[in-house]
Simulated assay, not measured.
Amino acid sequence: MLTAPEQRLFDAAADVASRLPADGTYLNTVASAVMDIHGDIYTGVNVFHFTGGPCAELVALGVAASAGAGPIAEIVAVGDEDRGVMPPCGRCRQVLLDQQPDTRVIVPDSDGSSSVPARELLPYPSQHPDANPPRLLRFSPGHWTNVVDGVKTATTRFNDPAVPGPATLLFEFDDRYRSLPGVVESVEPVRFADITDAQAALEGCTADELRTALRTHYYPEIVDDDVVDFVRFRVAGKG
């Protein structure tokens, strides 16, 4: 199932795809739409050519960059002639991982469409250690007030890597994204069962309460021996 912003993004790409010329004049067959951290949408189409024209996703990323968009939160590609959502090719997956590693990609699945992190589409990528892409740290909207007020200064993540340094704190409200400039101060691996009360206090609860909440709302499959990342962060300009 797609969230409301994701559905809005799909609709934008589908609208462009439906208007692609059918006479083969330009050989445009795929439309893409990207949404930045402000909820603004930018679209593009592929430019097919036997020498290797760019995919629609790359064109849309270029359009967003030329318009001064923020880091990209979501991306989708839609085929012409009602072909629906199309997964990105291998080259586009590598580009997304290098340039927008925390973006979510809408892909087709057995239930229609869903979104997955870009890193899950390329499990054995080519590594580019000199890349310095913008990073996102995503939160549910219920955490907005506590993060703004400095009550919540940590988050526990499972299979959701973060790295120290600047990051956009992204809150996924149903109507539109809201974001804050932030800094990830540290990332500490810890066994799930060994989360301490001192760590949990930075999230405004006890260790037992935190483990229960993580299992109930985020990671129902997690077990005591799994290693999670305890991520300390702050809003930029505070602390």
Rank of each mutant, 00 (worst) to 15 (best):
100 Q>M: 10
52 G>V: 10
164 P>D: 00
108 P>E: 03
197 D>W: 02
211 R>M: 09
5 P>Q: 01
39 G>R: 01
51 T>S: 15
168 T>F: 09
75 I>W: 00
103 T>N: 04
130 D>I: 12
162 A>P: 00
182 G>Y: 02
66 S>Q: 14
185 E>V: 08
170 L>Y: 00
8 R>H: 06
161 P>S: 06
77 A>M: 12
67 A>V: 10
139 F>D: 06
62 G>I: 13
102 D>Y: 00
138 R>F: 05
138 R>T: 11
52 G>K: 03
192 F>W: 11
239 G>F: 07
86 M>H: 07
197 D>Q: 07
24 G>L: 01
214 L>F: 07
142 G>D: 15
113 S>T: 11
8 R>D: 07
27 L>W: 12
74 E>G: 02
207 A>R: 09
26 Y>R: 11
23 D>Y: 04
190 V>H: 02
211 R>G: 06
47 V>N: 13
12 A>P: 03
57 E>T: 06
1 M>N: 06
222 I>T: 07
233 F>Q: 08
134 P>Q: 04
214 L>S: 08
85 V>H: 02
79 G>D: 12
224 D>G: 10
178 R>D: 08
69 A>D: 07
237 G>H: 03
196 T>F: 04
199 Q>I: 07
183 V>K: 00
206 T>W: 02
70 G>E: 15
17 A>S: 03
56 A>I: 13
180 L>S: 13
172 E>G: 10
155 T>F: 00
172 E>W: 05
48 F>T: 11
114 S>R: 11
96 L>H: 02
3 T>G: 08
72 I>Q: 06
217 H>A: 12
72 I>S: 04
97 L>T: 08
157 R>N: 08
135 R>C: 10
222 I>D: 09
22 A>N: 04
49 H>R: 13
184 V>A: 01
105 V>Q: 02
62 G>W: 11
10 F>I: 10
32 S>Q: 03
85 V>K: 01
160 D>E: 15
18 S>W: 01
215 R>T: 12
210 L>T: 14
121 L>M: 10
90 G>N: 08
197 D>I: 05
138 R>W: 05
239 G>N: 12
131 A>E: 14
221 E>P: 02
44 G>W: 03
212 T>W: 12
23 D>T: 05
230 F>R: 00
112 G>I: 12
143 H>D: 14
236 A>R: 09
9 L>K: 00
44 G>S: 05
141 P>C: 03
236 A>C: 03
15 D>W: 07
84 G>P: 11
230 F>M: 09
107 V>M: 04
201 A>W: 05
159 N>R: 15
132 N>Q: 10
203 E>I: 08
4 A>Y: 10
175 D>N: 14
151 V>Q: 11
136 L>R: 00
217 H>I: 05
205 C>A: 13
194 D>S: 11
111 D>N: 13
178 R>S: 05
118 A>E: 06
60 A>I: 07
179 S>H: 15
212 T>I: 09
122 L>S: 10
173 F>L: 03
68 G>C: 02
58 L>N: 12
82 D>Q: 14
140 S>N: 13
112 G>H: 07
12 A>F: 02
210 L>N: 13
45 V>F: 07
22 A>V: 03
